[in-house]
């Protein structure tokens, strides 16, 4: 799983900018040894936030001591094995990566789509569901709408509104 992407070199001593994909950008340094996308081990050190940016950090990578060596790493991704990520704290907490790809079924066993994302726009976690054809739709990630999650069987059961996948009208009846 990708945890970050190395950017351009910083300074002359082999430091690099890293775009961190973790919730707390600096936490990318707390996961232990990572690997580059070609399988090369990458141990991060001296991770600190990059002033003026939301998700960038500066870091050293073991064995990289010159600017030239750091420049070679530009655009390389930093990966971590799935089993190294900490488990969720309780039964209602899930890694978003575990939910993506689950089959979405209705209570009567009909498959209506697949989870393709777990965004949060500030109004609570959502499941973005892609039907076999047509545009995606969002469903609130609450017990009322998603009563059953079976990670082992790679499926979840939803109480979806009847018009979940219906195209939205530009305005409601109340404005016409």
């Amino acid at each position: 799983m990708p945890l970050g992407e190395i950017g351009r070199a910083h300074g002359l001593k082999g430091e690099v900018r890293i775009k961190s994909f973790t919730d707390d950008p600096v936490a990318i340094g707390a996961y232990g040894p990572l690997v580059l996308d070609d399988g090369t081990p990458a141990v991060l050190g001296a991770v600190r936030p990059l002033t003026g940016t939301a998700d960038m950090v500066l870091a050293r990578i073991d064995g990289v001591t010159t600017r030239e060596a750091a420049e070679v790493l530009n655009r390389r991704r930093l990966l971590i094995p799935r089993d190294r990520l900490p488990p969720p704290d309780d039964e209602d907490e899930f890694l978003a990566a575990d939910l993506v790809g689950l089959s979405v079924e209705t209570p009567d066993g009909r498959t209506i789509g697949t989870v393709i994302g777990v965004p949060d726009f500030g109004g609570g976690d959502l499941l973005e569901i892609r039907p076999p054809r047509g545009p995606t739709a969002f469903l609130p990630f609450t017990k009322a709408f998603v009563p059953t999650i079976d990670l082992a069987a790679r499926r979840l059961v939803v109480e979806a509104p009847d018009d979940l996948f219906e195209p939205a009208k530009p305005h409601g009846d109340e404005r016409s």
């Binding site: 994909f21 973790t22 936490a27 971590i80 907490e93 965004p119 949060d120 976690d125 990630f141 609450t142």
Partner: peptide
């Protein structure tokens, strides 16, 4: 399109 690889979702 967000990235957060270690993002956790909580079912309310």
């Amino acid at each position: 399109h967000g990235h957060a690889a270690d993002k956790k979702a909580r079912r309310k």
